[in-house]
Amino acid sequence: MSHILIVYEIRDQKIKKVSFEATSAGVDLANQLGGTASALLIGSAVKDLAPEAGKYGVEKVFLIEDGGLEKFSPDVMASAIAQVAEQVGATHILMGATALGKDVLPRTAFLLNSPLVQDIIGYQVNDGKVTYLRPMLAGKLHTEVSLSSAYHLATLRPNVFPVKESPSSPEVSTLQVELPAPKAVVEEILAEAGGKLDVTEADIIVSGGRGMKGPENWYLIENLAEVLGAATGASRAAVDAGWRDHAEQVGQTGKTVSPSLYIACGISGAIQHLAGMSSSKYIVAINKDPEAPIFKVADYGIVGDVMEVLPKLTEEIKKLKSE
């Protein structure tokens, strides 16, 4: 029987949304395969979070609680996950494709002698066989991947799988594993000023390019992002010019994003940029050149000067929100 294990990501004592997305996908997979789904929470104090997992339909919640986990180590977490998978007889291990999931799960995969399907955007079950859908070349192509390994491991791209509430009363149990001595340890988290929302997690992104002319005009992007509750992104041209930090770069050598709304301001739409954002649900382009390639992927376009269009857009959305 299939047993889908969903590994939760906890930051600042809160479960990340992507873990619930993974849970909904995991529960669905368990239903399709005729199996069960469980949540795994690992940390120094995670017991209080266990009921949260019950909102999305898992049958069991496993806890690994150990004071030694206060200082986070990716190698220790990887080992804990592998041990739990063996103990509870997991067949599938799912986690969010976040900085954490992408870092840790490949290590678990090695320990379980199974490859990992990183960053999936879909899956399909046919006659009990699962194929996973994932982008390659930053989304220029999609591939369907199948596994013949003992375990199936996959990370799920944030914002792709819907969260479905389905209350259950899971059985909660604390497991014992042998934590190895940590090899690399997180000493400190250096948060960006103002606790900025990251593009990979945002539902709306406002992105600026060379057409913004300089960092002094970025308040236009930031003001719009603020009224929308959006993250701010940038093209490589804006990053290379030193206007914005690389963490904001969207594209083939930056981040691949799929928000529900992507607003491209003064961005031409070079192939490397499109690769990173064309799977967004809705794309808005504001560019003064009607021939700019970005208009080929945009659902809605405005041909115009960002300096004039952006303040008006911010104002109109403010108006809408206050209605």
């Binding site: 690399a184 340890v185 000493e187 948060a191 606790g195």
Partner: peptide, 10 residues
Amino acid sequence: EIEGGKEKLS
């Protein structure tokens, strides 16, 4: 690099 910031590791 992590979401919204950086992590310092030793």
